[in-house]
């Protein structure tokens, strides 16, 4: 018998629905601090899933995704301040504008291969940051805060404002997961797996590798910018150094994916949970904590390149988000 679903995946689906309902109701059962923590969790879950799609499935190792995080943040603030747009409407527009910008940027960085692609994307992010610092109307190097009036347009009471920002985070977190999962189950997913497993084989299969990669890069950029615009709502301000931070929006994200399991859908989820746990207990150590993260990532890369989830999946042959088909042999 050949199936996609497994007992584990069916249980996971039921759990996911229950979890989603519980999370949806969080504004009524959680304190503001809980909402914010969950919101931040969703931000990292989304960024990690998107980076994983890029690096783990298409082999496009970008160290410059902060370019689109910051871009999204700046676009939202600009739209809200100068065009009086409702921030929630500004989010998809930010994604759309980022797609338009990613089209030519992608053409440029795709001229670099492998590791040079990585540094090329970093240069682009630096260019974005330096340009943002030159835009005086957006506060130049020190950045700008969202005026209270803009926040008022979202909702009159603090409860509903916090709830809306939180629901947006929830939507983007689950949305990114759904996007990756849906994409990998589609024909494009098959193509991506083929790319990952063998470029030569898939090129002879007639898959337009470069076009698939390019499309994924652009789509991920748009979605990343939407997450970035959410971040600017959560922080109620943007500044070049924070919005385009390589540490916050790329380094931590890479650690999450590497520790959780690169090239697996479950990896970013596990990685985000571990990241928040580590941060909860170790963040007081400051730079030592970051060194621990670095050492952990190196050890995982050398010892178990598919991360914690890869280890679990191989050990017990489980899959929460099955994308491939499995063969069951009945006696």
């Amino acid at each position: 018998m050949i199936t996609r679903s497994t007992p584990a995946s069916r249980i996971a689906a039921v759990m996911a629905v229950l979890l989603f309902v519980a999370l949806l109701a969080a504004p009524w059962w959680g304190a503001t601090s809980t909402l914010r923590l969950l919101g931040e969790f969703m931000v990292y879950l989304a960024l990690a899933s998107l980076w994983n799609l890029l690096a783990g499935y298409t082999g496009l190792v970008s160290v410059g995704q902060q370019a689109f995080v910051g871009l999204g943040g700046y676009i939202l603030v600009a739209l809200a301040m100068f065009m009086d747009l409702h921030p929630l409407i500004a989010v998809p527009i930010a994604g759309f504008v980022a797609v338009l910008i990613a089209l030519p940027v992608g053409k440029l960085v795709f001229r670099l291969q492998g590791a040079y692609f990585a540094i090329g994307t970093w240069v682009v992010a630096e260019v974005f940051r330096l340009v943002a610092a030159q835009v005086t109307i957006m506060g130049g190097g020190s950045g700008i805060s969202l005026p209270a009036t803009v926040l008022k347009t979202m909702a009159e009471t603090k409860f509903w404002r916090e709830a809306m920002i939180y629901w947006l985070a929830l939507a983007l977190g689950f949305g990114a997961l759904a996007l990756v999962y849906g994409l990998l189950r589609s024909r494009i997913g098959l193509a991506l797996t083929a790319i990952r497993d063998s470029e030569i084989a898939s090129s002879s299969l007639g898959i337009k590798i470069e076009r698939v990669k390019y499309a994924v890069y652009v789509a991920v950029a748009g979605m990343t910018a939407m997450v970035g615009s959410l971040i600017s709502l959560q922080k109620i301000r943007v500044s070049p150094d924070a919005a385009f931070s390589v540490n916050d929006w790329t380094a931590f994200v890479i650690f999450i994916v590497v520790i959780g399991g690169i090239g697996t859908i479950e990896g970013p989820i596990i990685g985000t949970i571990i990241y928040f746990l580590l941060r909860e207990f170790l963040a007081d150590l400051g730079s030592i904590y970051l060194m621990i993260l670095g050492v952990l990532a190196i050890i995982i890369m050398l010892v178990a390149p598919k991360g914690i989830w890869g280890f679990i999946a191989r050990r017990w042959n489980v899959s929460l988000f099955p994308t491939g088909y499995r063969v069951h042999i009945k006696d």
Binding site: G59, V61, G114, A115, F255, L290, M291, L293, G294, L302
Partner: peptide, 30 residues
Amino acid sequence: ILNRTLGKDILPPLLVTFGLSIILQNGLLA
């Protein structure tokens, strides 16, 4: 360290040196 990361896959050397970068920066800071 680095010899263990070399192969066809570009991810391991990239991510290991990325980790080294974070370790070095924060080690120097400490």
